[in-house]
Each structure stands twice: as structure tokens, then as C-alpha cells.
Nucleic acid binder design. Structure first.
Lengths: 156, 156
DNA sequence: TCCTTCTTGTTGACACGTCAATCATATGCG
DNA sequence: CGCATATGATTGACGTGTCAACAAGAAGGA
């Protein structure tokens, strides 16, 4: 009998998949909840503030910011709108390209990031790093790399 | 000099964390996009249909359904509302408890699940299982378990 | 220049998730 | 019984994410 190319996951593989995706989701949710509790920031807020904090002049073109956080422009636009209403960032017109917008970190935004940063790092350590042995951490990295490579290989 | 209890992740650990969370998120998004394309179902739809499909009489008390998919009742209520509008499920009053509601799988819902099931399993295999070596799959399981145990240990 | 085409960014509609409030019914205790 | 409390479920408000449509300026060639 000929070996047929495998098409479906086994029950065991499926179970591993479900546990994996549910656990990562629970992890994400717990991190988000803590960030919200301790700093009144969403993960999106944090990502944007971090990118601006590390940017030259604490400002970025909208597209560049989208690229750095890895979002579509539309998503960023909504996010920026909400953050501007709360005073965390400010929009400015771009001098070199009148279509463009620049996103600028406000003092309030910088302060919010400072307040959030250490508790957030602590949480990452407590919920992720401290949960794994050094070997497991290495394995996690390798698995991540394998998944990502596989994923990006597919959409080309 | 005394050893101080480690409080923050190293830059390396932080990088691993960020890659990990971003990759699992990308994976989740790709699975969701395929499910949507191929079957016009969201992951939430799929989870609910699956739970009902496996339930005695293809019906469940609302609370029980929420427990099986691991959601809050509120979230389920919204989801059920959307699915009922599309005819995938139906709400019925509960005989034994007049506060209660039962969620019933409709023929349309059952059909939608059948259509979605195989393509979804194929996608899980293609995007997750096939990306990893057997060793990595085992490692993924162990990491998942470690993370979950750690997580549940904390909120007690 | 004029016209097409690309890029930048915004908007609106809608699905989704969380939280707090609400409502009705069940339950348990005096 | 009568009342406080718990439970089952829904709702509304709001933040978030995706998608498609759009507006307006930039770029580049005929």
C-alpha cells in the first residue's frame, strides 16, 4: 500500500493545536488586562507609544509608524484617532509631503509610557519567561521561527 | 555581591517574547482569514458550531455552551445573537428553568459546519503541524502546558 | 502640460470582546 | 411564607480590527 501524503491532523495534533492557540490567547488577554489595570493603556497604545519613544525626535510619519508596529494604515488611523482624543499623541502635517501626517509623542504620552513600561516588563517576565525553563525558552524561540518562516513562505 | 531576584526580562528574553506573541497572533489571523474566505465563518462561529455539533441532541443550555467554548456568558450572548440572525442557530426557552435559554443547531448551521470542517482541519495541518518537526510539536505541547499551569496557578 | 497611476491617509460600516448594569427567575434561610 | 441573595441571560456603551471606498496629493510619462 502506498504512502499517501498526509492531509489532516491527527486527534493528538489537533489537541496540541487547540491547547496552543487557547493558551497563547489566554496569555495575551492576561497581559492586556494587567496593562489596562496598571496603566490604562491597551496593547495597541503601548505598541504605538513604544515605537514613538524609540523614534528620532519622538515623531514618525504615519506610514513609517504603521510599518514599525506592523499594522495596516487603516488600523493605525483609528488607533491614532483614539489616542489623540486622549492626548497621548498629536497629529501634525508633514512638510515634505502634503498628503502625509506625522504622529508626535506628547509629554502626556511619554509619561504614560514611562508609567506603563516597568510593570509591563515585570508582567512579561512573570507570565512568560518565568514560566519556562531555559531549554523551553530556546525551544519556544525555535518554534516561533519555524512557524513564522512557514507562514511567510506561504503568502509569497 | 548578593544575587538579586530577577525582576525584568533581558533584551534577549524580551525579543523572544515579542516574536512569540506576534507570530501566534499572525497564525491566528491567517487561520481566521482562511476560515472566513472558505466558509464565511468566524472562529467564534466555528467554535460554537463545533460545540453544538458534539452535544447531545445538538442543543445546549447557554451557560453550558459558554463553559464548553470557554467564554463569558455576555460574549456568548452577543455571538449567539449574531448567529441567530444568520440562521445558524436558534434560541429556545428552557423547560426546567424559565430563566434559561437553550441554543439549538439548525440544519443550516450543521451544513455550514460540515462545509467548514475539512478545509479548516487542512489549514491547521498546513499552517501549524506541517511547520514543525515532531520534536518541535512535542516541545510546543510542553511549553503550552507550562504556560497554562503557570497562568492558572497565578489567578488562584 | 495633461492624464493616468501610485501612494498616503481617512472614513464608514460592520464584526467582535469586555465591562457594568439590568431583569427575571430560582434558591435558601429566617 | 417572605425576603435577601444568587444565578442565567441579555443589553448598551465603548474600544478595537477589517474591509472597501474614498479624497487628495505625488510621480512620471505622452
Amino acid at each position: 500500500m502506498t504512502a499517501r501524503r498526509k492531509e489532516f491532523p491527527t486527534a493528538e495534533e489537533l489537541r496540541i493545536w487547540r491547547d496552543f492557540i487557547e493558551t497563547t490567547e489566554a496569555l495575551r488577554a492576561e497581559l492586556a488586562a494587567r496593562l489596562q489595570r496598571e496603566s490604562s493603556l491597551s496593547p495597541g497604545d503601548y505598541a504605538v507609544l513604544l515605537a514613538l519613544r524609540e523614534a528620532e525626535g519622538r515623531r514618525l510619519r504615519s506610514s513609517e509608524l504603521a510599518a514599525r508596529v506592523g499594522w495596516e494604515r487603516s488600523r493605525l488611523s483609528h488607533q491614532i484617532g483614539r489616542m489623540e482624543r486622549r492626548g497621548l499623541i498629536r497629529r501634525e502635517e508633514c512638510v515634505t509631503d502634503s498628503r502625509g501626517a506625522e504622529v508626535v509623542l506628547t509629554p502626556e504620552g511619554a509619561q504614560a509610557f514611562r508609567n506603563a513600561s516597568l510593570p509591563h516588563l515585570r508582567a512579561v517576565r512573570e507570565l512568560f519567561v518565568a514560566a519556562l525553563t531555559p531549554d523551553q525558552l530556546v525551544a519556544a524561540q525555535q518554534i516561533t521561527t519555524a512557524l513564522r518562516n512557514h507562514l511567510t513562505a506561504l503568502d509569497t
